Simulated scan of single mutants.
Amino acid sequence: MSQLYNSIEPNIIDDEMVQKAVEEQCPEDIEKLVKREGINLKDVTELQLSFRNILQIDNLWQFGNLTKLQLDNNIIERIEALESLVHLVWLDLSFNNIEVIEGLDTLVKLQDLSLYNNRISKIEHMDTLHELQIFSIGKNNLTTLEDVIYLRRFKNLRTLNLSGNPFCDDEQYMLFVVAHLPDLVYLDFKLVSDTTVSISACEIRQEHLTEHLLCWYASNILAFRAGSLQKLGLQKHAAAFVEYLNGSFLFDSMYADDTEAAKLAHLPGVGDLLQAYPSWFVSVCENLFNYGLKEYEKREAEVSNFYESLHEALTANQQEGRKIILDFENRNKR
């Protein structure tokens, strides 16, 4: 338990706290009436329990028709006892001590969820929240950027706050998030532009293609090298590990016998994609080819400089050795 509790008296959600909260949020003109005659908790649709030092969620089963619940700025450690709140649309659990996302399975109507400023290290256990539109999980302990991919299942998600997490320091953070969640309108309180979406999508596609290409190429390079080098210059390409990358050979050999690719051509809209894809693939190959040659030439230059320096050092040593021997012989003649 946090040392913070040494100076804070933890509370529980009891009948007195609930009754007081309901009375406080009633309009002044009917507050006295509510205090005198009471209120049916099933009629309450909104409940604010902020800043009450609540340690554990409990005793909310009476609010069967609740649509909005504020539990922010407490000391809650677990998300629990919310099973009966099946009509909940808005839930605020920000500024607590929650470490794990859990206990949300029955909240299938939830549209707005805030877990801002907690201790959460992984985005998980939210599979049933199909209606989610706004999600705030900034200022937690999220370190793995790939966790964002989990949010792709929420087709209605338009507003997302991840700011203040460790993975936000990654230079690819913004592009990665927008590429995997292209329907976002707001990210970290900022409007997502169409330009950002386009750039990020292209970069992610190229990154995935390059990874696929390198893996495939590595597994098949021995087969390529088995053939004889028939043209002038291929020996250099082989030494640079870029043979057969300066053209369409790699693409043709990968897709020549691909029957599944031929089937895809019959799907609507795929025809145009298949026409553009080969040239783009070849362009990536050529980029790899040029990069490989550049690195090879750099290595060759470094090796050449090394041997030149070695030769100069050997020559200098030989000359110095001859001089020493000559001086020795001259001294002995005297």
Rank of each mutant, 00 (worst) to 15 (best):
P278M: 02
A223H: 11
T315Y: 15
V185R: 11
L91W: 00
E320S: 15
I76M: 02
V86W: 00
E297G: 08
G138V: 03
I13S: 02
A239G: 04
L132K: 04
A265F: 09
N317Y: 11
E329H: 08
S198I: 09
S136E: 14
L267T: 09
D58H: 07
A261I: 12
D147V: 00
Q172T: 14
L267I: 07
G38F: 01
I13K: 03
L314V: 13
L33K: 12
S121L: 05
E300A: 15
M174H: 11
F249G: 07
L214E: 15
N161M: 10
G227A: 14
C215P: 09
Y186S: 12
N246K: 08
Y307N: 07
L88V: 03
T128M: 13
Q70C: 11
Q206M: 13
Q70P: 01
A316L: 09
D194V: 05
N118F: 01
N53K: 09
L113V: 02
L82Y: 03
Y307C: 06
F135R: 04
L222Q: 13
R158A: 10
V34M: 06
D105N: 09
L267S: 12
I75R: 04
G38M: 01
S279D: 14
L267H: 12
N65E: 10
E297W: 04
E207W: 05
Q133K: 10
Q275S: 14
Q230E: 13
E31I: 07
I98K: 02
S200P: 02
L142N: 05
K35Q: 11
G38E: 05
Y244P: 05
L88E: 04
A313G: 00
L113G: 03
Q318M: 15
H266T: 13
E31T: 13
L234A: 10
F289M: 03
R299H: 13
Q319F: 08
Y116E: 14
F249K: 08
L213N: 00
Q19V: 09
N330I: 11
I13W: 00
I79G: 01
V18M: 06
L93M: 04
P278I: 00
V44R: 02
A301Y: 05
I57R: 05
P27H: 11
D15M: 04
S114K: 02
Y307K: 10
Y150A: 05
T196N: 09
S309W: 15
N6Y: 14
N73I: 02
P278Q: 01
L213W: 03
T144Y: 11
D170R: 08
I149P: 02
L288V: 06
V178G: 00
E300H: 11
I325E: 12
V100F: 07
E83D: 15
F249C: 12
Q275F: 08
E286G: 00
L82R: 03
